[in-house]
């Protein structure tokens, strides 16, 4: 299948899921919602559409694209099929950054502190994992576990020191990841960082192609590996940090999507990156729709759904990696 056809298919799917996100919700059935909206365009339904469902759908697409793209880029760069923001501990360190900004009261004074702090946390996480891991699968997973545990320990410490006695309970829900009842404030907060992150990551495609041979080959083809590393890590930190700061931790999107799409693009990172962004947005919106449809009223957390989808996939990959290991 050509990239163009695949891309067009994903865009179509994304449009469908996006419309579904706007039409489905706890307030009224989809058809009644449309009728009510047409009958009274200025009523409460318009408010629900514009102020609740639209930002939710936009955030879902944005963060899904960030996670898919970051997953594909990390897998290409570390040449490891298990690299993914959640597994390598980037999401957990981004969450620590965001929690610190929020519960210290910094985010109340300056809303931008939350995404910025999330991005800094993500950046520290990526640097740590890269310093610890190398390219061996086992090393990467161990480094990811270490960084994740360290970040969650620091998160718990921040919560213990918070003046809000309910902080720990609140954060449990937040860490499960959710798009529920977000507003345009969140969209505007995350958008500039997210787009910058995407641009960084999308420029790394050709260097990642060369890197898939090996480092010497990439260097001899004229790619500056130090620069690639900088751009890629900045891109991952910006995209994942901003996403985590507004939606909490949503895992496995970055793992599943590149794996599903990779065989379709001939294992070329440059072709995989944009498609993974589209695929990530689709998976995120589909999971969010599932959350609303399966347990209406008492919403399941989005991160729980993506983990339920992603964990069996992860097991499968670990088993396969163990079998093919020398």
């Amino acid at each position: 299948m050509s990239d163009r056809a695949l891309g067009a298919g994903l865009v179509l799917l994304l449009a469908l899921l996006f419309s579904g996100s706007l039409l489905l919700g706890p307030a009224t059935p989809a058809l009644a919602f449309l009728q009510g909206l047409l009958a009274d365009p200025d009523g409460p339904l318009r408010l629900i559409l514009v102020e609740i469902r639209l930002p939710r759908a936009l955030l879902g697409a944005m963060t899904g694209a960030s996670l898919g793209l970051a997953g594909a880029a990390l897998q290409g760069y570390l040449r490891n099929p298990l690299a993914e923001p959640g597994i390598v501990g980037v999401s957990a360190s981004a969450a620590f950054g965001a929690v610190l900004a929020f519960y210290s009261g910094l985010a109340t004074l300056l809303p931008l502190a939350m995404p910025v702090s999330g991005i800094l946390g993500a950046m520290l996480g990526v640097l740590l994992v890269q310093a610890l891991a190398g390219t061996a699968t086992l090393g990467l997973i161990l480094a990811g576990v270490a960084v994740s545990s360290f970040a969650s320990a620091l998160t718990s410490l921040a919560l213990n020191l918070s003046p809000n006695p309910f902080a720990a309970t609140e954060i449990t829900f937040w860490l499960m990841g959710s798009l529920a009842d977000r507003s345009f404030d969140h969209v505007w907060l995350a958008l500039p960082f997210t787009v910058t992150g995407w641009l960084c990551l999308l420029t790394t495609g050709r260097a990642l192609d060369a890197l898939s041979l090996d480092e010497d080959a990439a260097a001899s083809l004229g790619f500056d590996l130090a620069r690639l590393r900088l751009v890629l890590l900045a891109g991952v930190a910006l995209a994942v940090g901003a996403a985590t700061a507004v939606t909490g931790v949503v895992g496995f999107v970055g793992l599943v999507v590149p794996h599903l799409l990779r065989p379709l693009v001939g294992h070329r990172p440059a072709r995989l990156l944009p498609l993974s962004a589209l695929g990530g947005a689709c998976l995120m919106l589909a999971s969010d729709l599932l959350v609303r449809l399966v347990t209406p009223g008492q919403e399941l957390k989005l991160g729980v759904v993506t983990a339920l989808i992603g964990t069996p996939f992860f097991f499968f990959l670990v088993l396969r990696a163990a079998r093919t290991a020398p």
Binding site: G25, P26, A27, T28, P44, L45, L47, I48, I52, R53, F102, Y103, S104, G105, A107, T108, S162, P163, N164, P165, F166, A167, E170, I171, W174, A180, D181, G297, E299
Partner: peptide
């Protein structure tokens, strides 16, 4: 859900205040 509250259009929405205005997600 927030949507349900908006549609029901209650006369009053009653909430607690977070102690000491501590930041609360």
């Amino acid at each position: 859900p927030l949507e349900t509250v908006l549609l029901a259009a209650p006369d009053l929405v009653v909430s607690g205040t977070m102690p000491g205005n501590a930041p609360s997600l």
